[in-house]
Structure formats: C-alpha cells, structure tokens
C-alpha cells in the first residue's frame, strides 16, 4: 500500500519537422522539440515557471495557423503538423533578437543567447545608431547590500515577476508597470526595494536570463573585473537553515562562495530558495 498513484497518460501523435512523433497528452511543442533533440531558443521560458509566451523567440510554424505559434505554451494536438526551421520561423526569431539587442544591453545574457544570435545572423545594428533610436538605457539601481537591478539589461521576459509571484515566492513585490516600450518591472510607485514588499529570496535573480538582476556580490566583482566564470566551481549541497532540505549550488571562486543558486529540476526547491538559503552563506567567510 505504499505505492504512489500511477498516472495513466494518453499519447498524442503529430508531425514534427517531417517526422512522426508521439508525446504524452498535455506536452507542449517545446517539450516535444526537447525530447526529439531539436534545439529551440527560449528567453522567457523556464522549466520551473508557467509559460508566459511573451518573448516569441521559440515560435514555430503550425500548418493551418495564420500566424506562428509559441512552442513553449502550445500543447501538441493530435495530427498537428509543425515545422521549426522555415524561413518565416528564422526571420521572426532573428528579428526578436535584433529588436531586443537593439534596445537592451545583452552583454551579460546567458551564453546560449549569443550563440543563437549568431546562428540566426542577428544584426541589431541595422535598427539604427544606438544614440538615435529608443533603448531602455537607465542608471543601475543599487538600494541595499544584496540586490542589484540593472534594468538597461531587462528584456521584460516576466520571469522575475512570476518568481516573485504565483510561481514561487508569492510576495508580489514587483510587477510590470507602464505600457508598450515604457513597460518596465517596478515596485509600487517605484519605491526602493527595501521599502517594498521584497523579502530577498533572490528567486527573481535566479531566473533572470540577461543579468538585469544580479547578486551584489557578483555585480561588485564584475565591476571590479574579478568575476571569472571559467575559474568557478559549482558544488551542490544541502541548505543548513531548516529541515526542508533545499539543495544549494554553491558557486565558488578562489575558495570563496560568490553566489548561490538551486537546481530547477530538484523536487524540493524547483530552483527556488528563501533569503536564508540564498544569502545566509556569508557566515562561511565571517
């Protein structure tokens, strides 16, 4: 009687880049691509967050659909015919990167972002001279000793809002404010983070793909020119602060912890931590 319930899953068959593919009902096109080894770029998608399908970089062509569809959120349907590498798909993906990179500082984005930009031949400079076109350039926000918010690197992927909200922390300290190109991530009335509801779980930083949100430790080292990921090790261990057993990934450089993350695929944390787990490590170097 100690079994866990076994879920019976129905399989759905569809055509993916010309091949017949079977996936469990409810799987998204992106899930299917990942199973089949079809590399697909993503920015706003993360395995531990609800898909918001706003970046549109994962779009694919679905037969019978007037427009391209976001693979991250569209469930596979029986008989669907999906193409992931058509001219239309390539154009849209390239343009998404060009639009973002022409308006946002992308230099601290995840390495795969740069690989994809190269893959699709993105040339953001053709949007015009940076000084003459609209960008999100703005001063960095440093309002406490733990967080740095550098919104000129923000691509508005909504991940931090999700991590602060329903998908993890349920604190709702930040939300998207404003509209259109002026849309931005903000506390209420743009009050400082210490004056907001923020409880410094760091989950927003954990999901940020472009370095717009950073731990102050990392930011300071980057500014000082000492941040060197090639010299860093990542060690997984267990958080010391309660009995839940959250896994911590300790990023160390020169025998010192420089930041803490958590594995998104671990059943205990789903990649999320609390302030103690995220920042309590400093006693190791006290």
């Amino acid at each position: 009687m100690n079994e866990v319930p076994v879920m019976v899953t129905t399989m759905v068959e569809f055509t993916l880049d010309g091949e017949a593919v079977r996936v469990p009902e409810g799987a998204t096109i992106l899930d299917a691509c990942q199973r089949e080894g079809i590399d697909t770029p993503t920015l706003c998608w993360a395995e531990n967050l609800t898909p918001v399908n706003v970046c549109r970089v994962c779009v694919v062509e679905v037969e019978g659909s007037r427009v391209l569809v976001p693979s991250c959120s569209r469930p596979v349907e029986e008989g669907m015919v999906v193409a992931t590498d058509t001219e239309r798909v390539r154009t849209s993906r390239r343009m998404v990167y060009e639009l973002l990179a022409s308006s946002v500082e992308m230099d601290r984005a995840d390495p795969e972002v740069h690989a994809w930009m190269e893959h699709y031949g993105a040339r953001p400079e053709r949007m015009g001279d940076r000084s003459e076109i609209a960008t999100v350039a703005q001063p960095v926000k440093i309002q406490d000793d733990l967080y740095v918010r550098d919104y000129e690197r923000c691509i508005l992927c909504y991940k931090c809002v999700e991590a602060c909200g329903d998908d993890a922390q349920h604190t709702f300290a930040i939300a998207t404010a404003g509209r259109g190109f002026d849309a931005h991530i903000s506390t209420e009335h743009d009050v400082t983070l210490p004056d907001s509801a923020c409880v410094y779980c760091g989950n927003c930083i954990g999901v940020c793909p472009t370095g717009a949100l950073a731990f102050k430790t990392e930011h300071d080292m980057r500014e000082a020119g000492t941040w060197d990921e090639s010299e860093q090790q990542v060690t997984t261990t267990v958080c010391p602060f309660c009995g839940v057993g959250c896994n911590l990934e300790l990023h160390t450089q020169d025998e010192r912890i420089v930041k803490v993350t958590s594995p998104a695929d671990h059943s205990v944390t789903h990649g999320h931590l609390c302030i103690k787990g995220r920042f309590g490590w400093q006693h190791a170097h006290a």
Binding site: Q233, T235, T236, T237, V238, C239, P240, G243, V244, G245, N247, L248, L250, T252, E255, R256, I257, V268, W281, H283, A284, H285
Partner: peptide
C-alpha cells in the same frame, strides 16, 4: 561547516537523505 566545508549526508523532514559536499576549505 557541515554544509559547505564537509562531505557527508543530511536527512530532511521528508526523510530524504541527501549529500552534502564541501565547496570551500
């Protein structure tokens, strides 16, 4: 420190035994 400077195990509230690993000396 147990959690950052030593190798071993910890058992959480759901009786899950997990590895702790030394990351720094």
């Amino acid at each position: 420190l147990g959690w950052a400077e030593s190798d071993g195990t910890a058992t959480n509230s759901e009786r899950r035994v997990q590895r702790m690993r030394a990351a720094v000396p």
